[in-house]
Design a protein around this nucleic acid. Structure first.
Lengths: 114, 114
DNA sequence: GCATTATATATGGAAAATCGCATATTCAAA
DNA sequence: TTTGAATATGCGATTTTCCATATATAATGC
C-alpha cells in the first residue's frame, strides 16, 4: 500500500469520518452511515466505493444491506494509524455517534441473528 | 489540529517525502531537499510554504539557508503518526536518502559550527 | 409469480480545488 | 553592487468533488 494513496483516502472529511466510525463500531451499513453523518446517500456511496477500491474497506452483503468493515488484510501500520487517529480525535465523530445511537430501526447484524 | 487538514498535508508525493526526510534527518534546508528528491526549487518551495502554513514545519534562517524541521509544538499524535509512517515505509525515501548522502557541499549546521 | 418498495451502485457533467511551471521579487552574504 | 538562495504569484492543466439521475438487486406485499 502506497502511503500517499493511503493518506489521500484520509484527506477528506466524509471519508475520514466514515473510516473512524467504522473503526469504532466494527461494521456499519450505508443507511447507518447516512443517518450518522446526515449526508446524501450518493455522496456516501461514492466515497465508500473509493475506499473499497483502495482496499481500505471490505463489503459484505446481508439481505438488503451491505455492511462495510476495515479490510482485515490492510497492512498493520495503516490499521494502527487509523486506531491512533481515532483515539486522539474522538471528538471528531462525537456528534455522528450520537446520531447513530438515536437512529431507530438499525439493521441487525448476522451475529445477533439466530 | 484538524485531522483532515493534517492528512491533506500528507496526501501528496512531494510533501510526504519532504516530511519523512525531515523526520529522518532532523533538519534540512531547501537546497538539500532539492538535491535529494531531484525536483525544481519552486515546486519544493511551494510545498514547504504550505506545510509551514499548516504548522507542520518550522523554519530557521541561518546565513543564506533556511532550515526546516518538524514543528516541536505539533500535537503528539501527529508526530507519532509521522514516525510510524517512516518506520513502515523507509523504502519510500530510500533513493532520496542516497542522493542526499552523495550530495557535495552540504551546508553545515549551527551545531557543527564553532 | 409479479409489482412495489427500499437499498446500493454507476455515470454525466459542472463547479471547485489542487498542482506545477514560468517568472518576478525579496533577502542576505560577499 | 553582484550573486546565490528562498519566496510569491499568475495561470493553464489536471484532478477531485458533488449533484441529479438512472440502473441493479433484494426483500415484501398482493
Amino acid at each position: 500500500m502506497n502511503p500517499v494513496q493511503f493518506y489521500k483516502c484520509l484527506a477528506d472529511d466524509t471519508r475520514l469520518r466514515t473510516l473512524l466510525l467504522i473503526v469504532h463500531e466494527g461494521e456499519l451499513c450505508v443507511c447507518e452511515l447516512t443517518a450518522a453523518m446526515d449526508l446524501s446517500q450518493p455522496k456516501i456511496s461514492r466515497h465508500l466505493a473509493l475506499l473499497r477500491g483502495a482496499d481500505l474497506l471490505q463489503d459484505r452483503r446481508q439481505g438488503q444491506w451491505v455492511f462495510y468493515r476495515i479490510n482485515p488484510a490492510l497492512e498493520g501500520w495503516a490499521k494502527s494509524i487509523l486506531q491512533e487517529t481515532l483515539q486522539a480525535n474522538r471528538h471528531f465523530i462525537e456528534a455522528d455517534l450520537r446520531n447513530l445511537i438515536q437512529m431507530g430501526d438499525r439493521p441487525l447484524r448476522a451475529t445477533l441473528c439466530c
